[in-house]
Design a protein around this nucleic acid. Structure first.
Length: 551
RNA sequence: GCCCUUGUAGUUCAAUGGAUAGAACUGCGCUCUUCUAAGGCGUUAAUGUAGGUUCGAUUCCUACCGAGGGCACCA
């Protein structure tokens, strides 16, 4: 990374020396390692201004650049690219860092920043479906990326423990439409009744009011027991998924808080058809209801209360909320409202939206019961992984199967850019081969085992800078930059891409080279394996994917 | 109708305005008397359409076509 800075500075100096007015200097990693460790297109970019052919300008720049620490070779290639090749000692240094530093790949870009990340957000009395799994995987990874960038991160989970969805579920259970604590099914029944039966609709609305004011002891009892069981169940899932929340926020708390905020700002909100609304049109958005004509707060109002509650709980510099894309427009209106009623907090609020889990046939909806629950998917995957886990060398095959299952599902989510929907394909999800989470785990476990074997044989790892660096070394060197890049964009998939190429290069190298071959070079090769091991381990950690040592 | 997101091999995804558009799955062939075959090697196959900006466009802009989402008392 030091080399990258030095190269940029040298380019800047050279360009202004040549009388070229400074614009943006881009330095990138060539996709093909043959084209060097870094590359720039400035010669092509400024050829017109300098009135010289791109290649000629590139040659001129190279001649003026002089020596750059850590750079062995500078070449002009193609249409006028200037390619930089790092020297073997700079690359060897990266291998040594990877091998010896626990936090290899970390940076201090966000040092001192307090960031709260809110994600998962399942609702008690409803199912934890694979959409929640998606939010959890993305949110957890963003939290870890921020931590690896030096930020002080707190994880938050916001849950809707009051509102019409709870009333519908309670109604179905109370009327014995559904047996036991099958919340998902109860919600479906309650929702259908609400939409088709006048009488049921009235009863459900009444229950909804009673839940808010806690005036009915029978309902309170049913509600309290259900809420507790529901939350305990979620907690089991978080444990498997590797998430530990620092703060839990509930709508039962944010609702009254939000109502206070709305009441305190009559100048911001307007009355309309008996409801209290915010006219988003004045900011190019749309109108949303904050308090219903029955006097109950909507999600909008609760979100105002949530923002204030978060700030009181832990004074953050930034609060990031991770949700599906379907809430993006909604969120924009809430944020616009915050600018008027919570001006100190509003600038710190960020929304990261991701695509949705969909079936090839269409959207899944918990209202109709057309969902796959998180636990059933995890159970299916674990079952599929068991066959191989039983044949593996793992000490605990059950645990390995679960780790592999978590890797498979999280990888499928984190390997793609967050803007796009994920078409859920059961067949594909159950596949544990190829471009997958287990592939990364396998490469890591392999490296781990070689390192242990080397230890048994008394081979000390030692990087030899005299040995010509290979592609694997060059890729390894890019890890810290891959982390920075992914963190900057809040995009875990950028890191996933990098890890896949690293694991692939490692597996390929592993197939051709005998590492513990008894030659003096073995010490160098073991160092490289150890460096890959740590890079995959840290990378998997950032993705929130377990890295078993044996498979 | 308006707004947001999105169109890349048969399929699911990559590609920081750059070099020959990469993987994986599927098909076919090869590869464990060397450290893990959940691996490796080989082979076929793609930028929705029409313009524009640029030295250079999958990427930026405009229009059209297709997909998903949102747009008042759900979350």
């Amino acid at each position: 990374m030091q080399a990258a800075r030095d190269i940029k500075n040298a380019l800047k100096r050279t360009l202004s020396g040549l009388g070229i007015s400074e614009g943006k200097i881009t330095l990138e990693h060539p996709a093909d390692l043959k084209n060097g460790d870094y590359s720039t297109g400035v010669a092509m970019q400024y050829a017109k201004q300098a009135r010289v052919a791109p290649q000629a300008l590139a040659e001129k720049i190279v001649a003026e650049l002089g020596e750059i620490t850590g750079v062995a070779k500078i070449e002009v290639a193609g249409a006028g690219f200037i390619n930089f090749y790092l020297d073997s000692s700079a690359l060897a240094k990266a291998v040594e860092q990877a091998r010896t530093e626990d936090r290899w790949g970390a940076n201090a870009n966000l040092s001192g920043k307090k960031i709260m990340v809110e994600y998962t957000d399942p609702n008690p009395f409803k199912e934890f479906h694979i959409g929640h799994l998606m939010s959890n995987a993305i949110g957890e990874s963003i939290a870890r990326l921020l931590q690896f960038s030096g930020a002080d991160v707190k994880r938050a989970n916001y849950q809707g423990d009051v509102g019409p969805h709870v009333a519908k579920t309670i109604w179905a259970v109370e009327n014995k439409k559904v047996s036991g604590a099958n919340w998902g099914a109860a919600y479906v029944v309650g929702n259908q009744a609400y939409e088709s039966e006048e009488e049921a609709k009235k009863e459900i609305d009444e229950i909804n009011t009673k839940i808010y004011d806690r005036s009915d002891s029978a309902i309170n009892e049913m509600y309290d027991a259900g809420r507790k069981a529901s939350l305990a169940h979620f907690e089991e899932l978080y444990k498997i998924l590797g998430t530990k929340f620092d703060h839990y926020f509930f709508e039962s708390v944010t609702a009254p808080k939000g109502m206070e905020i709305v009441r305190a700002h009559p100048e911001v909100f307007e009355q309309s058809d008996g409801a209290i609304v915010y006219k988003g049109e004045k900011k190019g958005l749309h109108t949303r209801v904050f308090v219903t004509s029955k006097g109950l707060p909507t999600y909008e109002t609760k979100d105002l209360g949530l923002a204030e509650l978060k700030a009181e709980t832990w004074p953050f510099d930034t609060s990031i909320t991770v949700t599906a894309h379907e809430q993006a427009d909604y969120f924009a209106v809430v944020k616009a409202t915050m600018e008027d009623v919570l001006p100190n907090i509003a600038p710190k609020i960020q929304h990261v939206s991701h695509g949705m889990m969909r079936f090839a046939e269409g959207k899944m909806s918990s209202r109709t019961g057309n969902v796959i629950t998180g636990e059933s998917l995890l159970a299916d995957l674990t079952e599929a992984a068991k066959v191989r886990a039983a044949e593996s060398r793992a000490d605990n095959a059950e645990q390995l199967a679960q780790d592999v299952a978590v890797a498979a599902i999280k990888y499928q989510i984190l390997k793609q850019a967050s803007g796009k929907d994920i078409i859920f394909d059961r067949e594909r999800a159950l596949s544990l081969e190829g471009d997958s989470g287990p592939y990364l785990q396998y490469a890591h476990a392999r490296a781990q085992q070689v390192v242990e074997k080397a230890k048994e044989q008394g081979i000390t790892a030692m990087t030899d800078a005299n040995i010509e660096p290979n592609d694997l070394v060059r890729l390894l060197h890019r890890f810290p930059e891959a982390v920075e890049y992914a963190a900057f964009h809040n995009e875990p998939h950028l890191l996933t891409n990098y890890l896949l190429s690293l694991a692939s290069a490692f597996n390929s190298w592993y197939a051709q080279v005998h590492i513990l071959d008894g030659t003096p070079e073995a010490t160098h090769k073991v160092a490289l394996v150890d460096a890959v091991r740590r890079t995959l381990k840290n990378g998997l950690w950032i993705l929130g994917i377990p890295a078993p040592e044996k498979m």
